[in-house]
Design a protein around this nucleic acid. Sequence first.
DNA 1: GCCAACGTTGGC
DNA 2: GCCAACGTTGGC
Length: 151
Amino acid sequence: MSYWLFKTEPDTFSIDTLKQQKVSCWEGVRNYQARNMLRDEVKVGDEVLIYHSSCKQVGVAGVATVVRARYPDHTQFEPDSGYFDPKATPETPRWFMVDVEYQRHVPLIKLAEMKQNPALAEMPLVKKGNRLNVMPVTAAQWQAILAMAGE
DNA sequence: GCCAACGTTGGC
DNA sequence: GCCAACGTTGGC
């Protein structure tokens, strides 16, 4: 079982949205490094930190689990979608997604606080210029982050 | 809104 | 295959 961190913009899709939907596909990842992880490494049963980016309070907002592994991201085939990719076909999809299930909220673990934690120094998240929106989390990092939320 | 960092594109 | 131009991300 592996741990991950998924970024989302809460104005579009937040931990609250996921709680309401209970299970949701994680569409719209259009970064090759992230795509490769969704396609090859993220498995059913893996646990995921839900991270809110590009908002007033950036940080980890909750926890989810993976309930369906890789399958083609349908938005790449939809011309009206902002995620449409004209080079993708159903026979040769370029982008993949997984489904996640809501587990729980956590008291917001702010990015600024995570940057202060030496145990998290190696996370891509806290490094300068980081743009990766799906990233692996080690067991030690996972525990260190949740410890910051009092768990 | 600003701007640094980074990824992608496309000409050569 | 290189690299400049451009667009996007994302924290502040």
